[in-house]
């Protein structure tokens, strides 16, 4: 393409009125090596546009697998549920066993015996106090 045309196109380009085809013509022109020095500055600009298009995503696209975060959440949820289940099972009070019942019965009987003993001795003391009271009332009759 002739230089005058290129300059005209450049003016249009900077006004934002070039068509895609015209812009492609400019890109083609600036891809060459023999650019007049006063247009040399624009070469880098058009080279940048071409080079930018070479920038590609390097990751492979996966659509079938679930998102990682979700899988992780389910793992946490199931672990928490399991923990809850285990702890509930572990800490629920269980009924007393037979040997425990027997032991408790023995302890109860022993305690009963002990209380009986205390009560007997207490009654002995009470009788003695009743005797003292008798003495007191007789004494008050005599010494008025």
């Amino acid at each position: 393409m002739e230089l005058i045309n290129i300059e005209k196109l450049l003016d249009k380009y900077f006004d934002g009125t070039t068509s895609i085809d015209e812009e492609n013509a400019l890109k083609e022109y600036f891809a060459k090596n023999d650019i007049p020095s006063h247009l040399q500055d624009y070469k880098a600009m058009f080279t940048y546009f071409a080079k930018n298009k070479e920038e590609v995503s390097s990751k492979n696209i996966q659509v079938k697998t679930e998102k990682k975060t979700w899988r992780f959440n389910w793992l946490i949820a199931s672990a928490a549920a399991l923990l809850l289940f285990v702890s509930v099972y572990q800490f629920t009070p269980k009924g007393p066993t037979d040997s425990e019942i027997k032991e408790a019965q023995i302890a109860f009987n022993e305690t009963k015996k002990a209380f009986q003993l205390i009560s007997d001795n207490l009654n002995k003391g009470n009788n003695a106090i009743a005797f003292l009271n008798e003495y007191e009332s007789t004494k008050s009759k005599i010494f008025k």
């Binding site: 380009y13 900077f14 934002g16 624009y42």
Partner: peptide, 17 residues
């Protein structure tokens, strides 16, 4: 879009020169 594009291109041109 056209206005923004023109402005952007002209800014690049100015900066280059």
């Amino acid at each position: 879009i056209r206005v923004a594009l023109s402005r952007a291109r002209k800014t690049i041109r100015e900066k280059i020169t």
